[in-house]
Structure formats: structure tokens, C-alpha cells
Write a protein that binds this DNA or RNA. Structure first.
Length: 600
RNA sequence: GGUCCCAUAGCUCAAUGGAUAGAGCAUCUGCCUUCUAAGCAGACGGUUGCAGGUUCGAGUCCUGCUGGGAUCGCCA
């Protein structure tokens, strides 16, 4: 039944051959859902067919095709032609069969685009010197949703996360921690480990800024001052000692990173994300040198006089890029070469996706180009899901200045807001404390995730705390509440002892309503939306789809009473439809990492 | 300065090259003795940044311009 569209296309091709003796390829038959203001379910756009000189304008061809399709396809009940648009109406009993067909068939919500192909999705990838913030949240939600979408589309997905656990940034926190001399632990401070480490990072930035200011006042240029600041020199020295394996530095580094990992694990758990594998920059950064050697051997890279290794990509519209410092140490891009190799060894992936902000567009262009030049078998499957930054009404977030919105704080706030709103509405009678807490969490975290995922990933977005905390309108709670309505009707019917078993062959007491057809069309579209989301790496499509479906369901809810004893057939049909909408909403949001409450 | 991205209603966002560009928020008007009002119905709101071009048809594709953002060999 799901091949309705192809069967119309095929019939149209056949009809054209018969009527006009012309051969038109199937994909020239453009079918779309009929716009609300016109009558019909699907619309065949006639204009493109004019190229084939069928003899007659769009209205004539549309009329002839309409007639031919209705004669050929028993499920077409009627048609109308407006300008170059042929609107086709599908018989109500076909829609009834479609609904019956869906019942107990979860595979309707799965695709097999991937055919079991292996895909690696790397996301989140934080530095270990500060808490996760709003930007990480967008990243995590996108990466998680994309993973679920690809999984539902028939790929075997491996989720990885890269910890940038070494280098200047973490040295800054370590330096400031030592400077403070308090031997402070998260337990002592009563804060999460990532927060504590982040506080010292901010402390460093303050001290550094002050030193630079003083030096500039003494007459140094900004660049000179930044280089000469004692705190920064100490940090660089600390990084060198770390690389040399200095035990004291390594011990402190291990201790502070462990605080952070413990804290991150807690945040990941609250968000419901789980990585199959963590990569640690400290463990792989040296391995990049092997790839550098390989590139030199193959003549893809070359060595400058000062010893640094460089790749020249000017012929590819890019610049020259240093891959190994003159002192022999490796750079960020060097380790990415190593990790790409490791991923292929571990997962033999057909595609490898990096969910990383668009500020690194250039980095990934270079990385992918290098891997291509090295002739890596996986080079073709590399993809950078480049998402836009999250801005605050006050402007850009700056972690050095401590003006970020931290993930933990934001989640807590959203849960509190959900609790307040739920208590205000007072519809949770009989739920115990644990159930209530779970509900607040489902609503609050759901709202947050939805807010961040509903926007096209590629676009920069604004995070307005006031708007995001609103649980009305286009939000997760709106969709969740629509879902609970579908559940609640079932509870009511059960309590009333009604028999609502749906028999697709039985005739409804009243003709199918437009809103009912519309809901069926929307459910019918689900696989297509999933496919577009998977092929376009765009979870926002599912978020917007779920909202549209929920909105239409609410219209149905007001217009079409489900539980009516005097119309058992209609009642059973509506109940089946309502339940199926609920199922569809649940499937869609699950792919976005958003759970459904059974009541709220 | 070079390269890349973005610009749609007061604000935040939608719209496989297809019909009269749609939602939410905000403002205003109705609807809870009837399956949960986190809802529904309606009003208001647009020169899709500007100028050209391609096309039967452009918010969507191409060129130029304006404005905003990102980035530009030894940071990550």
C-alpha cells in the first residue's frame, strides 16, 4: 500500500504513451500533496510534461490524464484540473485500508536506505577544561538525532566522541588551580568537577588579561604583551612538561580530567546519550605522525627547511597547511588524520560524519582533501555536518569571560519550569513523587531538545531564554500533550468497556472528514520525511513534521469526537486513527531523543 | 583584502524550482456541565535585503551590490 505514489507515476507514464505515443521517464511525473485550499489528496504537476509536446496545453493534458488515471487506477475516486495542476482524490476506502495496514506494523517507520552500511557519527567532542554549554547541547542533540535517524534508515551506526584533553586549554586550568594553592576538589567546593575546572579556566583568563593590560600600559604592543605575559609563559611551559611526561604535571592532569569525565558522564546520562567509543586526543595525537610520514612518502606533503611538514592545497582552491610543527610536534589536524584511520580500522565505515560547528568549515575541507589525496578508501564517505552557532540575545557566548549558558544549569531550569507549569495546570492527580519527577524531566528536557533541533542545523540560531522556556506553541510539550490525548482516549474507552476493534472493510456511518483524510495523508508521508532527514542530515525536518501532525491532530480532536456509541464503525475508525497518530508522533520524537509521557 | 555561510511578518523560524509565501511568539476577539484548554476558531501582520538574469513558473538557481557572521600554514 505504500507504493501508491509510484503506481500513480507508472500509470501516468503508461497513459501518456497510450494517449500521445510519447515516452516520458517516471521521474518526470511530479506528484505532491494537494494544497489545503484545493480538493484532492495528491497533485500531479502537468507543466513539466509540456516539454514532450503532447499536443494541448496543461489544462487539456491534465484533463486527459485525469480521465485515464481514474480509468486505470481503482483507488482514484475523482479528479479536478486547475490550471496546470491535476488534483487526484483517493477513495476513502483505500485510506481505511491503509490505516488497517499500519496497525501492528512498526516496520512502516523503518527504512532500508543504508542496507546495513556502517556509519560513524562523531559529535559533542568537548575540551576538558570547562562545562558543556549551550553550543554543545545543540551539537549533542543533532548528533544523537542524526544517529537515530540513520539507524531507523537501515544504517549500522557507531557514535563516537573525541575528548580534547590536552594542550594549552587544560594547562590554563591546571596553572590557575596550582596558583590558587587551595588543593580544591569538587567535593570541597561542592560543585561538579567540570564546573570547578572551568572556574579555574576563567580565573586564568582574568589574570592573563590583567597582565596583558599592565604590559600594554608599560608600552608593549598587544601582540608583544600577550606573548610576554608571565601566566601565559607558565602555561606554555606546563604544556611542554606535559609532553615530556613530567610526572607531577601528568598526575594533576589525570586528576582534573577525571573530575571532568565524571561530570560529563552525568550530563550525558541526563540527556540520554551514550557513546560507543571515546577518543582521547592525548592518546592519538602522536599517531598522526605516522600519517604525516605516509604523506611525505607518497609525495603529497613536503618538508620546509625549518623541518615543518606542509601540504600545498592551492591547486584545490585552498591554502598551504602546516601538519607538523618545526619542532616536530603535531597539530589538531594531524590527530584528525590518525583518528580517521583508526575509525576505518575499527568500523570499516562507508560513511564518516563529523558534527562540528561551522567555524571549522575550513578545517574539514582541508582534512577531507588531504585524506582524498592520500587515496584513503573512506575519503568519499566523509561528511562534515556543519551547524550554525547558537547566539544569545546579548550576543556571542564567550567561555573565557564566563558568559556561557551552561548545559546543566539550563536543563535544571527547564525541568523547574516544566514542574511549575504542570503544577499550575493540576492534571496529575494520583501520580506519586517519582512519577512526577520523571514527568517534569521528560517535559523539560524534551522542550529544550526540541527548541534546539527544530531549526535547520546549518543556520545560526538565536537562543532566547524567555522564549525557549515557554511550553506553548511550537514546542515539545505541545506535541507531548497531543500524544497524551491519544493515550487518554484509550484509557477512557477501556474504562467505559467499549469495543473499538477497527475493521477496515466496514463502512463508516458518516463520510470521512477532511481532517481525517489529512491526518492519514500526513502519516502516509512519514517514510518520505524520514528519508529526507537521513539523506539531508537534517533532524529539523522530523521536528517540524511532528509539530504539523500534532497540530492537525488537535484540530481533529476538537472536530471529531471519537467515543460515540451510536456510531461504532466511525468510533473504531477514529480510535484507530487517533492511536496511529500517537504512534507516529512517538516514533518521530524518539528519533530526536524526546520521550513521550503517558499523561501530563 | 581572499575564501565560505547567512538575509523571509515587529521577534523567532518554516516553505523537493510549482497554485493565493506558512507557523509560533507578541497584540486583539470568541470557545472549557461534552474524549486533558500545554488546546481550538478567528483578526492583525510581507516589495522574501537591493538590482539584473535563467525558466512556462524563482523565497529557492546564476551574476553583481549592500548588510551581518565565520575563517585565512606551525590554536583547538
Amino acid at each position: 500500500m505504500t507504493d501508491l505514489i509510484p503506481s500513480i507515476q507508472t500509470a501516468a507514464v503508461e497513459a501518456i504513451a497510450e494517449l500521445y505515443g510519447k515516452d516520458v521517464p517516471v521521474d518526470e511525473i511530479v506528484l505532491q500533496e494537494t494544497k489545503k485550499e484545493f480538493e484532492g489528496d495528491f497533485t500531479l504537476v502537468v507543466f513539466p510534461l509540456m516539454r514532450y509536446k503532447l499536443g494541448g496545453g496543461p489544462p487539456q493534458v491534465g484533463e486527459a490524464l485525469g480521465q485515464a488515471l481514474q480509468a486505470r487506477l481503482p483507488f482514484i475516486e475523482g479528479y479536478n484540473v486547475i490550471k496546470g495542476f491535476l488534483n487526484l482524490s483517493i477513495r476513502s476506502d483505500w485510506w481505511q485500508q491503509f490505516l488497517g495496514h499500519l496497525q501492528g506494523r512498526p516496520d512502516f517507520y523503518r527504512l532500508n536506505l543504508g542496507q546495513g552500511q556502517s556509519v560513524v557519527v562523531e559529535y559533542c567532542s568537548p575540551n576538558t577544561n570547562k562545562p558543556l554549554h549551550l553550543g554543545h547541547l545543540r551539537n549533542i542533540i543533532l548528533g544523537y538525532a542524526l544517529s537515530r535517524i540513520l539507524e531507523a534508515s537501515g544504517y549500522q551506526v557507531h557514535e563516537t566522541c573525541l575528548y580534547n584533553d590536552r594542550g594549552t586549554n587544560i594547562s590554563k586550568s591546571m596553572y590557575a588551580w596550582l596558583q590558587a594553592g587551595k588543593q580544591e576538589t569538587p567535593e570541597m567546593a561542592g560543585v561538579k568537577g567540570d564546573k570547578l575546572v572551568g572556574d579555574y579556566y576563567v580565573a586564568f583568563s582574568r589574570q592573563y588579561a590583567a597582565e596583558v593590560g599592565e604590559l600594554i600600559a608599560k608600552g608593549l604592543t598587544k601582540a608583544e604583551a600577550e606573548k610576554a605575559a608571565p601566566s601565559m609563559q607558565a602555561v606554555h611551559e606546563m604544556t611542554v612538561r606535559w609532553e615530556a611526561g613530567d610526572e607531577a604535571v601528568r598526575d594533576l592532569w589525570r586528576k582534573m580530567n577525571q573530575w571532568v569525565y565524571t561530570a560529563f558522564a552525568d550530563t550525558f546520562a541526563k540527556l540520554g546519550v551514550k557513546f560507543e567509543r571515546f577518543y582521547y586526543e592525548s592518546q592519538v595525537y602522536q599517531r598522526g605522525k605516522e600519517t604525516v610520514a605516509e604523506g611525505l612518502e607518497k609525495g603529497v606533503f613536503y618538508q620546509e627547511e625549518d623541518g615543518s611538514v606542509v601540504v600545498d592545497l592551492t591547486d584545490d582552491g585552498l591554502d598551504k597547511k602546516v601538519l607538523l610543527r618545526s619542532n616536530g610536534t603535531s597539530l589538531y589536524i594531524t590527530q584528525d588524520l590518525a583518528i580517521a584511520e583508526d575509525k576505518f580500522e575499527s568500523y570499516q565505515m562507508d560513511r564518516s560524519i563529523y558534527v562540528v560547528g561551522n567555524e571549522q568549515d575550513y578545517h574539514f575541507k582541508v582534512l577531507f582533501k588531504i585524506l582524498e589525496k592520500l587515496g584513503k578508501p573512506y575519503a568519499e564517505g566523509l561528511y562534515h555536518l556543519s551547524y550554525g552557532m547558537v547566539d544569545l540575545p546579548s550576543g556571542k557566548m564567550k567561555s573565557r569571560e564566563g558568559t556561557t549558558v551552561e548545559a546543566d544549569d539550563l536543563m535544571a531550569e527547564m525541568i523547574e519550569q516544566a514542574a511549575r507549569e504542570t503544577q499550575k495546570l493540576g492534571k496529575t492527580e494520583g501520580m506519586d513523587e517519582a512519577e512526577l519527577q520523571a514527568l517534569y524531566r521528560t517535559l523539560g528536557i524534551g522542550a529544550l531538545k526540541y527548541y534546539l533541533v527544530k531549526v535547520d542545523p546549518r543556520k545560526r540560531m538565536l537562543f532566547d531564554p524567555n522564549e525557549s522556556i515557554d511550553l506553548h506553541g511550537q514546542t515539545a510539550p505541545f506535541i507531548q500533550s497531543s500524544y497524551t490525548r491519544t493515550v487518554s482516549i484509550g484509557r477512557k474507552a477501556e474504562a467505559a468497556g467499549m469495543d473499538l476493534v477497527y475493521h477496515p472493510d466496514q463502512t463508516l456511518e458518516t463520510p470521512m472528514l477532511e481532517v481525517e483524510r489529512s491526518l492519514l495523508r500526513m502519516i502516509f508521508r512519514y517514510p518520505q520525511v524520514l528519508q529526507e532527514a537521513a539523506n539531508g542530515y537534517n533532524p529539523a525536518l522530523l521536528a517540524n513534521y511532528a509539530y504539523d501532525l500534532a497540530k492537525e491532530y488537535n484540530r481533529f480532536y476538537h472536530e471529531a469526537p471519537v467515543l460515540r456509541r451510536e456510531q461504532p464503525q466511525t468510533s473504531a475508525f477514529r480510535f484507530a486513527l487517533s492511536t496511529q497518530v500517537g504512534q507516529t508522533l512517538k516514533e518521530a520524537l524518539a528519533l530526536l531523543g524526546i520521550e513521550m509521557p503517558e499523561r501530563m
